[in-house]
Design a protein around this nucleic acid. Structure first.
Lengths: 208, 208, 208, 208
DNA sequence: TCTTAAACGAGACGGTACGTCGGGTCTTCTA
DNA sequence: TAGAAGACCCGACGTACCGTCTCGTTTAAGA
C-alpha cells in the first residue's frame, strides 16, 4: 500500500548481500519448495539480517522474481558469449524445423531442476497475485513470445504462413500446450510431443 | 504426517458442518483471496471447531478442492436438470461451430467471479503441490478434456479431422491457449479470440 | 490500551505452564539480570509458547511481579507452617528489641540472592512504570509496613511511643533508610546499622 | 566490550552536537519516558549521527546521566549567581527550621516535572545497573547528603545534636523517608510531611 | 593559507527481540 | 462419540533498535 517511507539509498546497497540473497532464495526453493521457503530462512542462509531483505523487497515473491530474473540474465549472458546470437529464433528457411528446434530446447530447459522449482513457484504465485503475475509475464514470458512473433512475421514475408494470421495468437498453438502440460502436469512433455504440435499447428487438423 | 488415529466414523459426520465449511471456504477465497484464507477463518466463519476441519481434511487446499468439486457438481446438476445433456459437446455436424460454441461458454464461465477465485487458487496450489495438482486435473480438467476427445473422434469418423491426428494433443491447440491466457494473464480472452483459435487450429497456419 | 479481546478462559489454564513460567522468569532474572531477561527467553526456558505468556500477562514486568508474589507466598506459607505466627512483629514488651530483631531479619532477607534480583528488578521497573509500581507497593510493601503500624500502635497503648505520633510516618524513620541504602547502594547495611537506626528513631537526635 | 580503538580527540569534539544530544535526551525522557527513549530517537531528534553518540558515550544511561548532570550544573550556576550561597544548608542557629526549609525546597524540586522524569529514570537504571547506580549516587546524591552532614556536625558543636550521633546515619532519618515516598510512591509528599519528619527525628518517638 | 586527518551526518548492515498470527494437536465440555 | 470451543507448543511474520561499519562532507590543527 504505502510507499517505502524515505526509500533507501541504492548507491550504498551491498552487492554482496544482494547476491547472497539471490543464491539462498533459489537454493531454498529448489530444496524445500516455495511454501516452506521463508524470509527468515533466506536471511539466515544468506548470512544477512531480515531487515536487509525487507529494505529492498516487499515480499518473498519479489525476492524470488528478481533472483530468477538475475539467473536468467546470467544464463543468457553465458549463452550469448558462446554463440553470439542469444536472443532470436534461428531462420534457416525451414520454419517447421526452426520452431521444432527451439521448442526442443525449451523442453530441455523446463526439465532442468535448477529452473523448474523457481519458475514453477513464480508461476503459481502469479496466478493468485495478479500484480506479480503481470510482472512475471512482462519480464520473462513476453520477451520469449516476442521472438516467436518475429519469426512468424518473417515466415509471412516468405509466404510460409498465411498473411492474414495474427502471429501473437498463432504462436500460442504450439507454445501454450507445452506450457500447460508442464505447469499443470496434464501430460508428458517430450521432443516428439513438441514436434507434433508444430506439425498440427502449421498444417491444421482438417484434411487438406 | 500422522494418519488420523482410528479414522473417524463417516456415518456420524455432520452434514450441516460439511456444508457450512464448504460455503465458508468458497466465500473466504472469493473475499480475501486464497493466501489470506486460513483454516481458523474458515472454522470461525462456519461456526465450527478447527478440529472438525482437521478431522476430515488434511489441508486447506483439500478443503477448497472438495468445496469446489461440490460447487461444480451442483452447477452441473442444475444445468443437467435443465437441458438433459450436460456432459457432452454438441454434434451438429459443423465441427467448427460446435467447438466455438463450447469455447464461448467456457469463456463466460471463466469470467464468473464465483468460479474464478477458487479455481485459480486451486490451479496455483496445484502448480506447486504436485499431488494436489494431479487430483485437480483428474477430477476437474480431464473430464472436460475427454469431451473434446470424444467430439474430435467423431469428427475423424466423418472425415472432418485427419485420421492420423491424436485427438488428445489436437484439443490442446485451442484449449491450452485459452487456459494460459486466463491463468497467466498473458492476453485478453473473448469470443472472437476463441473463434480465431478454432479456425487456426482446424485449418493450420500455413497456406493451403 | 485495549482490553484483551475476548479474555481467555481461566478455568482451562495450564497450571503446569504457569509454574514453569514463574520458575523460568525468576531463574533468568537471577542469572542474567532483568534487562537481559526476555519474554522469548522465559518461554523457551519454560518450554512454553510465547503466546501462552502473552495470553495471560501483558508485559515482562507483570510476569515477574506475579512470579515474585507467588515466591513470597510460598515462602510465607513455609514459614507459617514452621512457627505458626508468620505475619506479625513480635511483642515482647521491649519495643526497641522487637524492632531490632525484625530489621535484622529483613537485612538477612535483603541479602538473599534469590530475593535480591527479582525484587530489585521490580522496584526499578516500578520507579518508571507508575502503574506497576503501585501494584508492587500495594501487594508487597504495604502489607509489611502495616505490621510496623500495628506494633507501634501497641507501643502507644503501653506508653512506649508518644500518643501524638503518626505510626505510618514514624516507621519510615527506620525502614526507609534501610530501603534506600539497599536500593541505591548509598551505604552498607548490617545489623549494627539497623540497631542504630532504631535507637536514633526512638530517642531522637537532640540531647534529652 | 571492546575499548574505543584509539580514543577520539576531545579537542575536536563538536560542542553543538553535545548540547543537542543533551537536549534531545532530556526532552525525550520527559515526553515518552525512559524505556521508549532510544539512541536512534535521540540521534534523530538531535540531528546527529548515531555514531556521534556511540563515540562519546557507552550507553543510553550514560548519555542521560551526563545530560542530567549538565542540567543540574546549569541550575546550580543559575541559582548560585543569584544568592551567592548555593551549596550549603543555611545555619540560622535554629536547626529544625533550617532542615525544614531545605526539605521544603527539596519537595518543590522533586515535583518539578523537568527534573522528575530524568532523575527517576536514572534512579531506576541505577537500581539494576550497579555501576551506573554508584556513579549516580556519587555525582548527585552524595554531594547533597554531605551538606546535611556538615550542618549536623555544626549542630553537634552547638549542642543541638548529641555528640555521639553519626551524622551520616542521622540525616537518613528525614532524607530517606522522603526519598522513598517519592521514588516508590509509598505516600504523598508535602511540606507538612517533611516538617513532621524533622520533628520526629530530632525529638525521637519515645516520650521524654 | 592550505593540507589533512578527525569528527561529523547519514544510513546500510548483521543481529535480537518484539508482539501477532496461524498451523496442527490436544483436552474439556455439551448435545 | 462427533462436534464446538479454545488453550497449547511452535515457528514465521514484519517492525524497531541495537551497536558496527562504511560513506561523503565539514571543520579545525598544524605545516
Amino acid at each position: 500500500m504505502a510507499q517505502n517511507q524515505s526509500a533507501p539509498d541504492t548507491t550504498r546497497r551491498s552487492e554482496r548481500s544482494r547476491r547472497a540473497i539471490y543464491d539462498a532464495a533459489l537454493a531454498l526453493v529448489a530444496e524445500v519448495g516455495y511454501p516452506k521457503t521463508t524470509i527468515e530462512g533466506i536471511a539466515s542462509r544468506a548470512g544477512v539480517g531480515k531487515q536487509t531483505i525487507y529494505r529492498w523487497w516487499p515480499s518473498k515473491a519479489d525476492v524470488l522474481l528478481e533472483a530468477f530474473l538475475d539467473l536468467a540474465d546470467q544464463a543468457a549472458r553465458a549463452a550469448g558469449a558462446a554463440d553470439r546470437q542469444p536472443y532470436a529464433i534461428p531462420d534457416t528457411g525451414d520454419l517447421a524445423a526452426d520452431l521444432k528446434a527451439v521448442l526442443r530446447a525449451t523442453v530441455d530447459e523446463l526439465r532442468d531442476p535448477g529452473f523448474e522449482a523457481p519458475s514453477r513457484a513464480l508461476a503459481a504465485e502469479g496466478l493468485v497475485n495478479e500484480e506479480l503475475g503481470r510482472r512475471f509475464v512482462a519480464k520473462l514470458l513476453e520477451p520469449q513470445l516476442q521472438l516467436y512473433v518475429d519469426r512468424l512475421r518473417a515466415a509471412q514475408d516468405t509466404g510460409d504462413i498465411r498473411a492474414d494470421v495474427d502471429p501473437r495468437i498463432a504462436l500460442e498453438l504450439f507454445v501454450s500446450p507445452l506450457a500447460q502440460r508442464w505447469l499443470q502436469h496434464t501430460g508428458p512433455i517430450s521432443h516428439d510431443y513438441t514436434d507434433t504440435l508444430v506439425d498440427y499447428a502449421l498444417n491444421g487438423l482438417a484434411p487438406r
